[in-house]
Structure formats: structure tokens, C-alpha cells
Design a protein around this nucleic acid. Sequence first.
RNA 1: GCGGGCGUGGCGGAACUGGCAGACGCGCUGGACUUAGGAUCCAGUGGGAGUCAUCCCUUGGAGGUUCAAAUCCUCUCGCCCGCACCA
Length: 826
Amino acid sequence: MNGYDALAIEEKWQKSWKEQDSYRSVVDNSKMKYYVLEMFPYPSGKLHMGHMRVYSIGDVLARYLRMRNFNVIHPMGWDAFGLPAENAAIENNVNPAEWTYRNIEHMKKQQNRLGVSYDWHREINTSAPDYYRWSQWLFLLMYKRGLAYKKKSDVNWCETCATVLANEQVEKGLCWRCSSAVETRDLEQWFLRITDYAERLLNDLEKLEGWPERVKVMQKNWIGRSEGAEIIFKIKDFPEKEIRTFTTRPDTLYGVTYMVLAPEHPLVKPLVEGTEQEKAVLDFVVKTRQESEIDRTSEETPKTGLFTGRYAVNPINGEEVPILIGNYVLMAYGTGAVMGVPAHDHRDFDFAKKYELPIKAVIQPHDQDLLTGETMLEAYVDEGYMINSGIFNGTESKEGINKVTEYLQQNGLGQHRVTYRIRDWLISRQRYWGGPIPIIYCDHCGTVPVPEADLPVELPLEVELSGNRVPSLAHYPDFVNTKCPSCGGDATRETDTMDTFICSSWYFLRFTSPKCDSAPFDPADADYWMPVDQYIGGIEHAVLHLLYARFFTKVLYDAEMIKEDEPFKRLLAQGMVYKDGAKMSKSKGNVVTPDEIVERYGSDTGRLFILFASPPEKDLDWNDQGVEGCHRFLKRVWRLVADSVEELNTGSNLREQGDAEAELLRSLHAAIKKVSIDIEERFNFNTAISAIMELVNAVYSYRQSLDKNNYNRAILRVVLEKLVILLAPFAPHLAEEAWELMGGDGSVHQQHWPVYDEKMLEVDQVEVVIQINGKVRGRINVPNECPEDRLIKEAQNNERIGELLSGKQIKKVITVPNKLVNIVVQ
RNA sequence: GCGGGCGUGGCGGAACUGGCAGACGCGCUGGACUUAGGAUCCAGUGGGAGUCAUCCCUUGGAGGUUCAAAUCCUCUCGCCCGCACCA
């Protein structure tokens, strides 16, 4: 017998699959389709364990479902635009495109060495003109539909990356990519109107039954819907101006004792112009705007404010209240103005105490003494009934919310309003390596979209690499200067490129028809393959890519280009790979790469370990000894097959089918059942693999228990064949080699998944536990499905149980068929 | 603060609707085979006591429901993740 030579086997079959074009997928209306997709990678050039994990999970599903006769599409591609290419370009003096393409070649080799069953005919590269052409086309679609617009506003700026960022790409005030502090800059930028879709993005989360709760919650928080009222306050001495404020608690309107504006609020300047306060207020504005995003939004930052010298008029009772500006009020949320109700809001309470502003209680809890502003030690934020509220006195606060809103609405003083935390998606990037925004500026015609026929607007590939960063597109006159498509006069191009998240917001659609050159995708192909049935990727994209992709899908649905308005039916957010309790990192020296594992043990071992060590959605702790264990298991399988094949071919005696064979077949069917359910219904690959291990142990026991020339060869062969098929999704190369060795037909991956027979799982005798007062006191063997009365009799006849029961009075007996008898005694 | 999740042997983890806690693997112990074993095969392995064909304890902790709880309920401790001055 030859040993298990993983490397030789893997190379052999990878070559064969490629030659046979085994994993090509084509539309076939006679079959049920299944779209398995792993988040495509950024081609950094290095495959890490996180990649290996996500591909292993996807490949098990793809291979399993093919064997279950689904028409599986399992594509792979490259999210190839982005900053690292530019940085690497400067470091290595190589063109970003070239660097990217080289990495792709390398990573593709690494992926193939993992034996993942991709349909490479569908490979896409978002940085290729025939891809970004359609990203640009989709930008223009957004533009036509009024969803893309340019606006000057405060935006997030990362100095290190030298570009602006979307809100989703700022984490705790830091850049998502490089973790440097993000500043605010006032710039004119392109946005996509994702806020128009906020309500649908929120509501449709309910449809996503196959998504993990935590991802849905994160999106929900991000969208941040809140319902309340917009209330209009007049300003004393400024009859033409008004302050609009948003509140979720209109029932506390009578408790307003001051107003606070965000320092950026447009009314601040006009209100203080020419007054004594002007200098102080404007200084305060400047100072606040210098504070970093983190400081500004941290709860620990002390609230500071300043009186503007002006007064607002409470629309419901005509009271005049001072107008302040405050660092804690954000221009970007609601209306940038807050009505201060210190008695019923924690922040307002702190603020009022600090600046000695009056506190007026207007909501009275039912079970407490009457609240007064003077005696309150903290804000009362819960429900109660309204007091000091004129005609609303006595109204329950919950009702008051609606009643006050209604009153305001009837009198033109305000209205019901819903606000969202989510903001429009800033998509301009001041960087070279991205898809150019297809817009032309003409002195005569203004902003002119590039005509579809002129797409793609190609990136110039000759770039300057001499400085410390790749210059943006504004640096290349040949690119910038153009003719206006509308009047033919001189014009200039938009020089910003699109956020890379645009590329990844529709790539799953492109996979359905990657070569289509008349549209982003062929609608017929998209109809057949979409939606993605199972999407797999890291949790870090919970509100980035996954939200953007849903948005794009809804826009395309509205444009009647697709028939589904959610892209990903089921989502599996896989856990991280750790080692020694920490994330793998160079600085900690705890990195294990897929390459090392593949070279040392083969990819089958690596895949098996990664799937066996932990359920996919949980974090995984890499353990070198665990890998050894999985390798040992594969060697054990290999020996079992190789040894048996010799014996199957040379053995002379043919044992009749007896108890040992029945037991072996029972193990087989139990394994088929467990592996099938664990893959398909629960994604518990770890327990699926343990079931296969148990089957292998059972076959070893069978062989062990009999004389070498006395196996039932027919049954042993059947069991081994099915065993190899069960193993095929997990260890595809070993299974293929074993299949060939046993003389199986074709490829193991083209076999039908075995079907289990419940009847085969039945046993004649079952062991039943006897409990006395819930404690196990004995076991008896009884026939399968033994009737209750006999079960009880047998239990009582048991010698030991009899002893324990003597002198006791039986109060009650509970039986669970085939499981237990519980005798309750006094 | 709000929201989501988790807590089981020395370790990774099993235990579907309450019904034998600890599957499977790692590690460890013993044996077999061997010149050798860090290869392989077999057996054992939650803790404690013991008169080894027995008993007690055990799923972060404390209560509760139940014939029966890792699983359900209440309180509590600890950890992880997300959001967070959101008006």
C-alpha cells in the first residue's frame, strides 16, 4: 500500500478538474439553481486564513449541492480597485494596474491550490475597463433617477489616505482603512441618495430570515429611524426667521426652557451679527469645529454652550426662551437644533444644571411625589401624565405625543416627522486607482453626464510614480481636457473616482453574465441565477458592503432591471481566525498561512481542520496539534480505503450478512443522515465531520472484529464508497483519489449524494434507562418500541431496582418510549 | 446607557422540540507492534470517595417551575460584539 501523498494527489486532481472544466455552470431550466457566493477578495497578493475559511465553507456547500443535483453557480472575482495598489505602486515603482494584475495571478494560484470548485469562466475584475464601464453606467442610472447629486458640505477627510470617506467608512472617528483620525472639510462632492431608501432598507430587513440577527440589528441601528415631530419656533426680533427643531417627545413641549443650535447651524451667524455676543459666539464655533469627530461625539466630553443673546418663542405657550449654541448638538442629525427640556432629558438636564438654566417639570410619574424643577436630582425620562401643560394637563404622555403633534399640525406650528441617522453615501474619492466618475463640466452646459456610448471613461494607465503618492486624475491634462458631449465646446472631466464599494455593490449580478457587453448584466441570466442563495463573508461588512449592495439592488429593481429587491437570501457571517487567543498578526508572530499548511499537509487537511475546529459563525482558535489530528484522520481514511481495496480484490471468503454487517450499515445510514442535516440545515460542518469520523471508527471496528479474509465484501464496498462520497465536499482531493482507487465511475464529485433509509436506523433492542426520582439507577435492554406496560414491568423486575424499591411506595411512573422509565417514590 | 450574543472537562467543542451531560477531535495514561517511534493499532481518560459488579458532586453563581433542567423562568456575576451627547 502506498502512503497518503497529499501533495501529489492534490496536484493531480486540480489539473484534472481544470482539464475537464468540471465546475462550469450554465443556465439549465430543468434544474433548481443555487447561487453560492463568498465575498470576493481585495487582491492584496496574500491569501490569509480568513480567506481559507470563507472559501472552505463555500466550497463544501457548492460541492454538496451539486451532488444533490442543484445547478450550482460558484463564481470568484476581484475587488481590484483601491488604495493599497497605489501605495504599493509607489513603494515598488510599479504601475497600480500591473501590481494588481500580478497579485491576482498569484492569489488565483493560491485559491486553486485549496481545491475550491470555482467556475473561472465567470471571473471578474472590477478594475478592468469592461467592468468599470458598467459601474459608470450604473452611476449614470442613479444620476438619471435623481439619486446621484453633487453638493458642497462638511465631509469626512482622511489626511493619510488623502481622500474623503463615507460615514459608513468612519469607525469611531477613525478611517476604516488606515485608522487615522478623520477631519471635517467643507468640499463639493458626489453623493448617492441612499436616504431615499432608508425606510425600505429598514423594513425589508424583516424579509431576510436567513440573515443573522446581529447583522440585521447593526443595519437597523445604522439606519437609525426615529419618529417624532418637527416643531417651529419663532425668533424674537427676527420675524422672518424661524428655528425648526426635531423631537421624539413633543409631549414635553411645555417643559422647554431654552433652545440649542449646532455651532454649524446657518442661523448662528445672522443671529449674532453686529451684537456684543458676536465675537464670543464665532470663537466658540471655530473652537468646536476644531474638535475631532471622536471628541465631538463622545459621551464623556463635557457639554459646553454659549448664549447667543437671542430668544426663541415656544409655539405652544408663547414663552420666550434663550437660544444657545452647544457642542453636543450635531448639524447632521435632525434639524441641527434641539429644544431643551431639562426635566425630561438627561443631556438637557446636565446642560441646564451647568449653565443654570431653569428646569420645568411637565411629565409626572404616577407613583411619585409631584416633581418640581427645583427638587429634581436627575431627569425623569419615562412615561407619566402631563402637568404644567395648559389644555393638555392630565393627558398620558404616550397619548400626549400624538395630541401635541396634532395640535401643532392644525395650527401650522409643526408636523409629524421621521428622521434617520443614515446619511447620503459620499462616493467621490480624490484618488487615482478607481473608476472615474463619468461626468463632464462645461462652461455653457454645466454638469453633463458622459453619454452611454462613450463609456467607459478610461483611466490613463501611464501614471507618475515619482512622488510620495500617485497623483489624482486632475494631474493628467489628457484625461481632464475633453469636449462637451452636448455643445462640443471645451470642457473638463470630473477627476474624482468612485468609492470602491460601488464596484462591490453589484458584482454578484455581473457574475450571472460576466461577458455581457450590452448591459451591466443580461436580465435573463440574472433572473435565472439571482438572488444569491447563500452569501458568506466577514461580519466587518455588516453595514458597509451589505447595506450598499441592498441599496443598489433596490434601485435596479425600481428600474425594472431585476425581479428581486434583495440580493442575498441567506447570509453566513463567518467568525475570525485567532491563534493563542489573539488575532493573527505579524507583530504577535502568531501567523499561520494557508501556503504553509498546504505545503506541509495538503489543502484537504487545512480545509478539514478549519471546518472541524468550530462552527462557521464562531471565532476559531488555530491549533497546530488540531491540524495534526485532522491530518491523522485523513491518513486513517486513506489506509482504510487502500487496505480494503487490496482485500476486496484478493479476499476469498465471503461472509454472510450478520449482526456485524447490520451494525455497520446502521452506522453508515446514521452518518448519512447526520452529515446531510448538518450541512444543509445547520451549517454545522464540525459535527458533520465528527459524524464521518464516527463512521470511519465503525468501519475500523468491523474490520477489527473479523478475520481478515472473512469480511462481507459487498457490504464493505458499499460502506466505503458512501463514506468517500460523504467526505468529498470536505476533502475533495483525497475523496477523488480514493474513488478512483476503488474503481468508481467518473468523478466522486459527480456522484449522487447518498440517501439514508430510516428503516436501516432501526434496531431490535434498545437500552432504556431506569431512573428512581430522576436519578439513573439502572439500564435494561428491551425490544424496540416496547409498550409502556411491559417497559414498566421489566424495569421493576430488574434486580437492583427491586432492591432499591423495596419498602418504598411508588407514587408515579413516567415512561419515554425507547428512552427511559422514571419511577417516583415517596 | 441601549441592542445582540456567550459562559459546559486540561483544550477546541457535542447534546434537534426539557429525557443517560461531556459526541468527535486535541492532550494525557497504559498496552500491542517495532532496532526505534514523535508512525500505526487497541484500551482508558469530568471531579471526589470507596468495602472497585458502588455512591456522591458537576454545565459561571443563587433561587424557582417540573417526575425530569446545560436547555424554561427570576435574580446575579463575568466576558465578547455592535451602537452611543441621535434630540
